[in-house]
């Protein structure tokens, strides 16, 4: 559970990339004083709320371009959360690939097609209502499931060597190119297929 993992732990730390790598924040909560918000907790909440709102924006905004910009914002906030989760490599990737590449592609397509959406953004029908209800039910179930999870003590983080390498590019690379070789090759195949497929489909004539 994201909130617990990040927010309410006694010795939570932010593990920043680059020069700030070893910037450790002090434990912020003591057993006998009422809990206070730590800086990273505050940051988390800011990002979380922003993420949810911008994600909602994707869904409810009428103009596709506004939706897309909202999605970009979501990705940025998510990247922030990833950093808080000690996953700076992935956070960087997120910014590079999602915000940098995928969203540009999206915007490009929207501009290219000069889509001007008329009519209501959401049109409800029976099946869609059903879908919305199913979604709500799933949300409730998931929230319940996450609520039940125990808070982790992050005991592994007491091992500084592990903590130091956690989430670093080197570590990610080492694992990916040694252990995850087969899926990696599969991804390369996937990208090849995607290139061919995209070119083939987007050509105006065969």
């Amino acid at each position: 559970m994201v909130v617990d993992v990040v927010g309410f732990l006694p010795h939570a730390t932010i593990h920043l990339p680059g020069p700030f790598r070893y910037l450790w924040l002090q434990p912020i909560c003591c057993a006998n004083s009422p809990p206070r918000m730590s800086p990273e907790q505050i940051l988390f909440w800011v990002f979380a709320v922003a993420t949810v709102f911008s994600a909602l924006g994707v869904v409810v905004l009428k103009n596709p371009i506004a939706s897309a910009m909202s999605l970009v914002a979501t990705f940025f906030f998510l990247a922030g959360i990833y950093v808080l989760l000690w996953a700076h490599t992935v956070a960087a990737l997120q910014v590079l690939v999602y915000a940098g590449a995928i969203m540009v592609l999206f915007l490009f397509v929207i501009m290219l097609l000069s889509i001007n959406d008329v009519g209501p953004a959401v049109q409800l029908s029976f099946s869609r209502l059903l879908g919305a209800v199913a979604t709500a039910a799933l949300l409730a179930a998931l929230v319940l499931a996450f609520r039940k999870l125990p808070t982790s003590d992050l005991a592994w983080a007491n091992d500084p060597a592990r903590l130091a390498s956690f989430g670093s590019i080197k570590e990610v690379g080492a694992i990916m190119y040694t252990q995850w070789l087969f899926p990696f090759e599969a991804v390369s195949l996937l990208l090849l297929v995607a290139i061919v497929g995209a070119v083939v489909v987007a050509k105006s004539r065969i």
């Binding site: 996937l190 061919v196 497929g197 083939v200």
Partner: peptide, 11 residues
């Protein structure tokens, strides 16, 4: 792998 087959099939 599911995506490999799916993406190819979409195209």
């Amino acid at each position: 792998n599911l995506e490999v087959l799916s993406v190819a099939t979409y195209a």
